[in-house]
Structures are given as C-alpha cells and as structure tokens.
C-alpha cells in the first residue's frame, strides 16, 4: 500500500459519508412525524398503510405473493419468493432512510413520513 492507495480509499470513504448525509438529515427531520408504509411494485404505489397499526398485508409481485408485516412501528417482509431471500433476511426496518428492496420481485417497501406531520389529528370540538 502506498500513498496513492490511501488517498483513493480516503476519497471513497469521504464520498460514501457525503452521500449518506442527505439521507441522515431527511431521517432526523422525519423522526417525529406520522409515518406510513409504502409498497411500490414496478415503480407504482400499490399499498400505503399506517406504520402504527399492527397487521400483515399480502401483495402480488413478480414472483408470487409477498407478505409484509407491520408491528410496533417497524416493517419487514415476512415471506416472499426470491432466489436468496435477501429482503426477508434484512428484517425489521423502522426509519425512512432504509428501504427494503426486493429486485427479483420488483418490489420496494419503504417508510415515508406524512407531510402533514403531528398536527394532523382529528379533533372534534363541541
């Protein structure tokens, strides 16, 4: 390893951190907002559900049925058909910066913050 090697490695690490900063900022901004689970299939939204409601959902994707479980403010892909089962191995996700991507199924499960935020509480004044 010489100087050029170390400079290159340093550059890659710095660029990785720089690429991560926008994701991190977005995540910290969304921390206290209402969040929703959004499921995209072939880049089209097919399911949007509340993150705080515990339930299991089934959707149809390229390689058959995919089960998505929402529990305790986190989401995971429970069962799916794909060569390596990478998206179900990935487990629970509860922040907005990390989508669960299942390329063989062309499915993306992502947590999104609702734009309305915390103020969006239904109140009835009598």
């Amino acid at each position: 390893m010489n100087k050029a090697d170390k400079i290159f490695i340093g550059l890659v690490v710095i660029s990785a951190i720089l690429l991560y900063i926008p994701l991190f900022i977005q995540d910290s901004q969304n921390k206290h907002k209402q969040k929703a689970v959004v499921v995209d299939y072939q880049n089209e939204e097919i399911l949007r559900v509340d993150l705080n409601k515990d339930e299991t959902y089934r959707v149809q994707a390229s390689l058959g049925e995919v089960q998505i479980e929402v529990k305790d403010g986190a989401v995971r892909v429970e069962k799916e058909n794909s060569p390596y089962h990478l998206c179900s191995i990935q487990g629970w996700v509860k922040d907005t910066g990390r989508p669960i991507i299942c390329l063989p199924n062309e499915l993306v499960v992502q947590i999104e913050a609702n734009e309305t935020g915390e103020d969006d509480v239904d109140t009835v004044i009598q």
Binding site: A16, Y20, L23, N43, G97, P99, I101, E106, Q110
Partner: peptide
C-alpha cells in the same frame, strides 16, 4: 428497474 432507491444503499455498499 427505474428505481432510484438503490441510491440509498450506495453509501454503505461503497
């Protein structure tokens, strides 16, 4: 796949 979300994994992969 016209998926820009893979970009979210780019930092960790790098």
């Amino acid at each position: 796949y016209s998926q820009f979300l893979m970009g979210a994994l780019l930092p960790i992969l790098l």
